[in-house]
Design a protein around this nucleic acid. Sequence first.
DNA 1: TTGTAAGCGTTATCAT
DNA 2: ATGATAACGCTTACAA
Lengths: 340, 340
Amino acid sequence: MAGIKDVAQEAGVSVSTVSYVLSGKRSISAKTTDKVMAAVERLGYTPDASARKMRGMRNHIFALSAPIRGDINQAKYNAYFLQTAWQAKNRGYDVLLLTGEDAVADIRRVTQSNLVDGVVLLDIEEHDERTAQAGSYSKPCVAIGYPAEHEGCACVDIDFATAGRMAVDCLYSKGHRSAMFLRDNETDCDRGSGYVLLFRKALLERAEELGMTIHESFKHRDDRFDAVEFVRELCSLDERPTAIVNQANANVLKLVLQQLQASGLRVPDDISVLSCGTYFEGELMPQPITEMPVMPQELCSKAVDLLVDAIDERRDIKGLVELSAPVMHSRGSVTKVGDV
Amino acid sequence: MAGIKDVAQEAGVSVSTVSYVLSGKRSISAKTTDKVMAAVERLGYTPDASARKMRGMRNHIFALSAPIRGDINQAKYNAYFLQTAWQAKNRGYDVLLLTGEDAVADIRRVTQSNLVDGVVLLDIEEHDERTAQAGSYSKPCVAIGYPAEHEGCACVDIDFATAGRMAVDCLYSKGHRSAMFLRDNETDCDRGSGYVLLFRKALLERAEELGMTIHESFKHRDDRFDAVEFVRELCSLDERPTAIVNQANANVLKLVLQQLQASGLRVPDDISVLSCGTYFEGELMPQPITEMPVMPQELCSKAVDLLVDAIDERRDIKGLVELSAPVMHSRGSVTKVGDV
DNA sequence: TTGTAAGCGTTATCAT
DNA sequence: ATGATAACGCTTACAA
């Protein structure tokens, strides 16, 4: 591998001249510049990343922590991986993927050894060890999610409390007085994903305020969702709910939509469907579903911007919380009901 | 940040002693070891990754190239990301994610600057610039896939040619003489994903040999698969095919299965379904489907092993090709037909 | 068993 | 406008 010394020799100049030509940090004569660039070209010289960083320069790498937890289907994080990597590249950073089970240990290892300049946290739980320890990391840290303990890092998330209220308000204003709340299997809740809890709390509270009824239902058999049972319960309720608020994934919702059709219930004529905190972009739904989606692109973009700011501008982002307003994408699956 | 000098001072020994205690490369008295370890603990010392690598040591990072191509649904690569990261960690390596559109440029950048010790290539096309250029990378490289040009790197893949023949043999031996070939929308084919081409070629050739009829069908409207039209065509054929060979993704197959049911065709009584090169583990299929799956775990494991071997043992893996035998997972969706 | 010092490839501070 | 050189934090050959 050709080093800066080889280039200097090839060009007949000193190493510092080569360095300055490449960095542009001082004025160099056109002739010298040409000689050096030619030599660089000829030798295929690329500066060594480690040596460069030894001089106190940035590494231009940050860690992306997405611990693999056996029970969870991780497919939904793919969009976050790609968006983070993409945004990082836009800002001149590479992404080091950390998927080990002991996430805190991994983060400590890569931050303390100066392998990375910062950390992005994915798949945040309500009580997340990674954010709880963030204050002790030697590099800035941004969480995509909104955990209870977040003094040591910045947080970026959708405002799920508002989303919960918006969901109720949307339905209530269209005359709905009773709705089913459809969630994924309980794993996520047990783990305590913050957004699920927040959304549910706000949903129930706002419904209470307005005097709207929310039926919670968990129909899972052998870890699989039972759509037939769900629809059966829906139909058997005294005052049949006129809407479904969905927070489950695409597969579960598809099963429900199918079963509704099989039961002769048309969407939205017989029942409205509103999906929240989901991401059906590109998913093949039987019909378009009105949605307040999560926004991987927006969240990742914000997170990366914040982190790069903290790194490059030495900005202190500890404890910062940025919640994005939920956005309602009307796709016709929610309609008015009654005499409203 | 505490450095090795601080530790040496704190422990009252020389820097080299600290280094040797940590590396275990020479025998140190128990007393000294204790003193040093205590100091390391007290100061929370972690060696600097760059400085370490400057001394010719490995970086213990490799690049994972998965270029974002606008038209493709990247969700299917998630399993490969995670498996690669997981296997890498088992072998003591971290993974740097490269998703830039100009993949070759990214790879050159990280290999030439010694940021990574090796490269793993994902989502390989039949004619892939990344493998075509692999010979000129300054680090070893493994492709998960089997492209035309692969002199400069190692390749790890399922043996899709054999899979194609196995699919035909399986159906033929059960009395099937005519089948529909169901593929994803044509994007993958146009791009020329190697495995799709290989599988199709072998499938058609073997069918020809045995005198079996394969109907190819592309029913896509507005970039969406039209299951209704597909089943209509299936039923309208003179000698109605008794089997479907599927290579499309879970969503497309689900639509077809649904439509078959709607048309009164039962699987496998009225029509057999065999899926190849897919990965339905954990997907919610209406019913279990006999499958020759792709095997992310096995492929990634092999790829990582190969790469780590090349890095740590300086083994030359250029041009190496390792094809895994396809495995048939019988799940009851293929049955005998006629008087066999 | 332990210490001293050279050197890895850069960048930045001097000097010229 | 350019060159010589110290320094970054570590590993290891050589000395004691």
